[in-house]
Design a protein around this nucleic acid. Structure first.
Lengths: 249, 249
DNA sequence: GTATTTCAATACGATACCGTCTCGTATTGT
DNA sequence: ACAATACGAGACGGTATCGTATTGAAATAC
């Protein structure tokens, strides 16, 4: 529960308070580390970078071996990392906090889109998704983490806000640019357009993990969505016909 | 491990073998219950339907309360159901077996497509997905089960083969019919077409659980995919232009 | 040199769960 | 009546994990 500091005990840490209190007016350097990596530990033995790495790598290794997220106990992580449990508890108050850091280590942020052409950016994004999908198939780690993320709201939230949302925003922006440039129709909601492009790609990468991820897939999706599925060799004779006609609505 | 029958012990059930052996040539009615619900228990007190219902409902209730799948222990289920643990072990050898049955109870099989018009069937399928998505938003149960399914290969496999695959096959067949009827272009892979329709719907229902699921969404998706996103008011002037042009490939 | 802090290791009490077994009772076929 | 089976309840011996505490060594600041 307690974040990190405060070497004393939880219930009987009172004995230390006198000392701490008698240390008189140490102000600016005595700040409680609110969050993140604190600055200078400044007194005793510094925390071992090696231990930190070992811990993160242990989690990664276990996940890579196909261990489900729930199967990772602090004890097992400590054992695997060759580290005392306290060393973990000293850094992360929570298993989820630890996983958040792991996630940050293994999921590099999406490279920013070039911003040149809207259509080109859409393509780049789909290609990036394709590569991420391929990576997930080759890595039990990524697959596992992704599969189990929804179980842990914090993790899912983190992934959502660091990967999914930014991509959605970026692609939607690219769509708007494409619309403005006359590359895409202006009479359809940009959000819907974004989904028309991203949805099929996602279906392949996430939902159908046995389907191939050919390298021309992004291109084929974009091409088909652009041209539309109405028959007529692209000449599109009957544009007046209701596309939902005969669909029961 | 052992399916259900055989009241005796696991390690010291040998004592019963003599009796069983000495029962001479009882053939056709002595069959081991291979799977499913066996027919006539035929001797002692019959199994309580009420207990069975109580167990399944207990699982459902716990999941509805947001309990993660991993948080469901046999003990807890038994406690919640007001049932002895043995009563559970008597029916299901495995937690996963139990969950499979639960899954069967809460996920009614997809209604068969009408088979009239290909496009109409595609629409019907998207609409069915939309409804399923709405149900998942209102039910912590469905959400949880779905979210955690990938963790448990058996469950995921069951869902895949009872829901996802049949739908994929059905929609793909509908696509083929639509192509044959001249409702869809014939020069694009039917599987890809299926993904173009289903993908965007899935994106909304699964991935973006905060986005609305308006009732005109299936129609809008179908319309947009049919018409294509190339600008030009549907008249599609420049069909010769490469849709992937300027995309960096 | 001394105080402080971290280190790995491990002991500790608490808790939860597993799967089997037993108990006394209830409900069925023969 | 009697044998067989199911029932709820829970005891039982194991195992695993939790989060805290202790220990003796090591590393650093003052």
């Amino acid at each position: 529960m307690r974040p990190a500091r405060g070497g004393g005990g939880g219930t009987k840490g009172e004995a230390l308070r006198d000392q701490e209190h008698g240390q008189e007016h140490g102000q600016e350097h005595d700040r409680e580390p609110v969050h993140g990596h604190e600055r200078e530990p400044r007194r005793g033995r510094p925390r071992s970078e090696a231990a930190e790495r070992a811990i993160l790598q242990a989690v990664v290794r276990l996940l890579e071996e196909g261990e489900p997220l729930a199967g990772l106990s602090i004890e097992r992580i400590a054992r695997t990392a060759g580290v005392g449990k306290a060393t973990i508890y000293r850094r992360w108050s929570d298993k989820e906090e630890l996983f958040m850091d792991v996630l940050r280590h293994i999921e590099p942020p999406e490279p920013p889109l070039s911003g040149t052409s809207g259509l080109a950016d859409i393509f780049a994004s789909l290609e990036s998704m394709r590569r991420r999908g391929l990576a997930q198939r080759n890595s039990a780690l990524l697959y596992n983490v992704f599969a189990q993320m929804k179980t842990h709201p914090k993790l899912w939230g983190a992934y959502q806000s660091t990967v999914i949302e930014p991509r959605r925003v970026a692609v939607t922006a690219a769509v708007r640019r494409a619309v403005a440039a006359g590359e895409l129709r202006a009479d359809i909601d940009a959000e819907l357009i974004e989904e028309l492009f991203v949805g099929p790609m996602l279906l392949r990468t996430i939902h159908r993990k046995e389907a191939p991820l050919d390298d021309d897939l992004p291109e084929r999706i974009i091409r088909a969505v652009l041209e539309g599925l109405r028959p007529g060799d692209g000449k599109t004779g009957d544009t007046a016909a209701d596309p939902a006609a005969g669909t029961g609505r």
